[in-house]
Every structure is written in structure tokens, then in C-alpha cells.
Computed example of a mutant assay.
Amino acid sequence: MPEPRTESRHPEAEGLHLRSADRVLSALLDAQIGALAALHPALPAIEMAAEAAAAALRAGGRMGYAGAGSSGLMALADCLELAGTFGLAPAQTPMMFAGGADALLHMKGAAEDDARLAIADLDASGLQSGDVVLVLAASGRTPYALTIAEQARARGVTVVGFANVPGAPLLEAVDIPVLLDTGPEMVAGSTRMGAATAQKVALNMLSVLVGIRLGHVHDGYMVNLTADNAKLVERAARIVGDVASVPLAVAEAALAATQGAVKTAILVAQGVEPDAARDALTRSEGHLQPLLK
């Protein structure tokens, strides 16, 4: 099997250890910026993946994540943010990480080669026909990721595969392939660098588009956030005040009347009764735009 491009030496890496610190850092930054250029040709695939995921969530299904090592960490970072940012229940976004929680403190390489572990994690995720799973592997040939992709697809799950190597097996095994061709790393094989940066940005874009499609983003505000700390309670009040065009005191009263439900509070702040606001949001499938004054 030929060496994946992520394992090759970057053309700018020769003599890296001999350079001054400022030149090393500048070269590393340029390589990170260059890796992001790989996102442009992937935009249509990312859009397709986001639309599929939004449709699954809208229908009451799930959007799962899966990966090992650095790719798994990028998936986990996006997955964990969805509850606070978009109000998605964790049960709607199961995470499959090679090695489980223990591996987050000390990652063990053997876990990413364990196909049986992948099947057990997929079984525990609850993913089924009609759901979507985002599977990440920089090399596109990690056994854990490949097994989840193949087994999930066999169960009727729509599988999105993110890989950083053209022609990778993962891209051939999924419904929606997303190639992020970031090329060689400045530290050969260290895909926590350019490959992971591109993966994280791709997931950022995908999940925001999902949030928009579900009505959880309005004018750039996270109107379905879960306000579970002081910072987010203050943010929720500012969002209600700005979107409803009311003073902060009115926004805070509306949030109190809706037990912190931001979208409902926006309508209440505009004079709608809480029950009527909830009913209207149900009819609009969670979208504020057609309901605002």
C-alpha cells in the first residue's frame, strides 16, 4: 500500500530544526493556513452532509460522530459543543471515540485498530436507519473508523466520511465522501496539525449549517442555546433583547416566563403568550423568521 501523503515530508520542512524560532513558527503558521485551502473544493460535500444531518435531526433522528486519535478529538470537540450552542440533546449526537473516555487522558494506538471495539461502540450509539454519522480519519484507512463506516452503512445509516488523503478507503466506503486534501505535514505524519485543523473547520461549518437549517441560528445568534451557567444566562438575555428589539429588563422577564427557552422568550418579549409562542414555533418547525414582528 503506497504511503499516504500525510506521512510524506512537507517541502518546507527540510532544515526546520536549524531555523530560528520565529522562522519555525512562521513556517508552521503558513502550513496551517495552507491546509485550510483544502476546504474550498470540499464545500459542496460539506453542504450535502449538513443537509442530510439536519433532515435526520428534524425527523427525530441522530447525528453521530466517530473517529480515533487526533481525528476523533476533532469530532469530539464539535460533538460536545452542540448541546450548549444549539440546544441539541446529547442523546441526539452520540460520540464514538476509539478507546472511550479512558483514551482521552492517555490515547492508546491499539484502540484504533480494534474492529470489535468499533462494532460495540456502534451498537451502543443507538444509530439506526434514517440517522447520519460523521466518520473522521486523516489517513482514511484507520480500522476503527472504517469498521464503523461499513457497519453503519449496512444498517441504513447515512455515512459521511472525512479523510485527508485522495483515494482513501474511507472515501470509497461512505455515502458522502468529504476529501480535505491537506497534503504533507510540517512534522511528517503528525495529522494533529494541518489535517486536524481542516477537519475542525469543516465540522464547524457543517454544524453551523445544521443549526441554521433547524432554526437554531437566527441573524448569527444561537437562539436555541442551553443557558446553564451565568455567562450563558447573560448571553441569552442579550440575544432576546437584540432579536426582539426590547430592553434588557423585558428580555429577562420573558426568559423567566419561558424557563430560559430563548426562542420562545423572543416571541413573548414581543407580546405573545408563552403557550401561543410554543405552538407557533411548533408550526414553524422551530424557525423564528416567519413569526417575528
Rank of each mutant, 00 (worst) to 15 (best):
P2G: 10
P2H: 12
R5W: 13
S8L: 15
R9K: 12
R9A: 11
A13V: 06
A13G: 07
E14W: 14
L16S: 06
H17R: 14
S20N: 09
A21G: 08
D22C: 09
R23I: 11
S26P: 00
A31S: 15
L36E: 10
H40L: 14
A42D: 05
L43H: 08
I46F: 11
E47D: 10
E47A: 15
E47F: 12
A50N: 08
A55E: 04
R58A: 15
R62I: 02
G64E: 05
G64V: 02
A66R: 01
S71R: 00
L73E: 08
A75D: 09
A77R: 13
D78M: 04
C79E: 14
E81W: 07
A89E: 14
P90H: 10
A91D: 14
M96A: 08
M96N: 03
M96C: 10
F97A: 00
A98T: 11
G100W: 04
A101F: 07
L104Y: 08
H106F: 14
H106P: 00
M107A: 15
I119W: 07
D123A: 10
S125E: 11
S125G: 06
L127Y: 07
G130Y: 11
V135P: 00
V135K: 07
L136Y: 15
T142S: 13
T142R: 02
Q151I: 09
R153C: 06
A154C: 07
V160A: 08
G161C: 04
P169Y: 12
L171I: 07
V174Y: 09
D175L: 12
V178H: 09
L179S: 04
T182Y: 07
S190H: 06
S190T: 05
R192V: 03
A195V: 00
A196R: 00
A198K: 02
A198I: 05
A202T: 03
L203M: 12
L203W: 04
L206F: 07
I212Y: 09
L214D: 00
G215P: 04
V217Y: 04
G220D: 01
G220S: 02
M222E: 01
T226P: 00
T226D: 11
D228A: 13
L232S: 03
A237P: 02
I239D: 00
D242T: 10
V243I: 07
A244Q: 02
V250N: 01
V250F: 00
A254V: 04
A254S: 08
T258C: 13
T258I: 01
Q259Y: 07
G260L: 07
T264G: 05
A269H: 03
Q270I: 02
T282Y: 05
E285W: 10
G286H: 10
H287W: 06
L288F: 07
P290Y: 10
